[in-house]
Simulated scan of single mutants.
Amino acid sequence: MISATDFDPHGPGVPRIIGVVSPYDMALDRELWRWMPDDVTLAFARTPFHPLVVDETMASAIGDDDEIRATARCLAAVSPEAAVYACTSGSFVNRVAGARRISEAIGREVSAPAVTTSEALLEALDLLGVGRLAIATPYIPELTARLEDFLAESGRTVTGCVGLGLDRLIWHVPYRVTADLVRDADSDEAEAVFVACTNLPTFDIIAPLERELGKPVLTANQVTAWAGLRRLGLPLPGGDRLAEASRAPVG
């Protein structure tokens, strides 16, 4: 029998909610959860399914204005304090204006501040003072080139990029492959390395690679989680450089 002393009668309290608009093939919900404090809940809504491989066509489809709005509308019922669009390619494929259009559409539907993964990357680069970066992606070359265009338009210099050439099952890539990809992308000219794709597992390799390379290693899910928490006035947990910067006093 459970007695009244076995639990807090006031309950866990009302959670702070971040709405997540994710692509239909998102397989790493749990990775985003690993960055969340106990009092923050993620509410996910997925875009409609399209039988496509991961390429420019798919990236454009999952960033379609009407589908983004309809998906975000599903989150309005839980009244999130902030929302994120957890997809790198879908937010950079149409350059900076395309990313902004997505976040503005989501924000209108949920009546809360919203940000895309690609915009979150730019905010993280600003926080860390990074203007020159290397990029490591799981994508086919044509999609990686779109990321280079996005970064160039934002005023950043890409010092080098490498990709795995994958168009499916990106969440199956083991850490050792991704770690080698980051090492191959890095160079003395790069002030940081960005690892693209919210479907590529990266959580446990960020801090070790930063110690090895001596510079920030930013990843898609990491910057997405950070940007969402930032809109709640909360720092990113953890010991990587972005987390440390998010806890630093302003001024």
Rank of each mutant, 00 (worst) to 15 (best):
I2R: 15
D6A: 12
F7M: 06
H10W: 04
G13V: 07
G13F: 08
I18C: 07
I18S: 03
V20R: 02
V21F: 01
P23I: 14
Y24A: 07
M26D: 06
A27E: 02
L28C: 00
R30G: 04
L32E: 02
W35N: 01
W35I: 01
M36K: 04
P37L: 14
L42Q: 08
F44W: 13
R46P: 02
P48G: 04
L52S: 05
V53I: 11
T57M: 05
T57Q: 11
T57G: 11
S60D: 15
E67K: 12
I68S: 09
L75Q: 07
L75M: 09
A76H: 09
P80D: 14
V84Y: 07
S89C: 12
G90D: 09
G90W: 11
S91L: 13
V96Q: 10
R100G: 15
R100S: 12
S103T: 12
S103I: 03
I106W: 12
R108W: 06
A114Q: 11
T116L: 04
L122Y: 02
E123R: 12
D126E: 15
L127M: 14
G131S: 06
A136Q: 03
P138V: 04
P141G: 06
E142N: 05
E142A: 14
L143A: 02
T144Q: 09
E148Q: 11
A152I: 05
A152V: 11
E153Y: 09
G155V: 07
T157N: 00
C161E: 02
G163N: 13
H172C: 02
R176K: 04
V177Y: 00
T178E: 02
D180F: 01
L181I: 05
L181Y: 06
D184F: 00
V193L: 09
A196C: 07
A196L: 03
P201E: 04
T202P: 06
I206P: 09
I206K: 06
P208V: 03
E212K: 08
G214W: 12
L218G: 03
T219V: 07
T219G: 08
A227R: 13
A227S: 15
G228K: 07
G233R: 11
L236E: 09
G238S: 10
L242P: 10
E244T: 15
R247F: 13
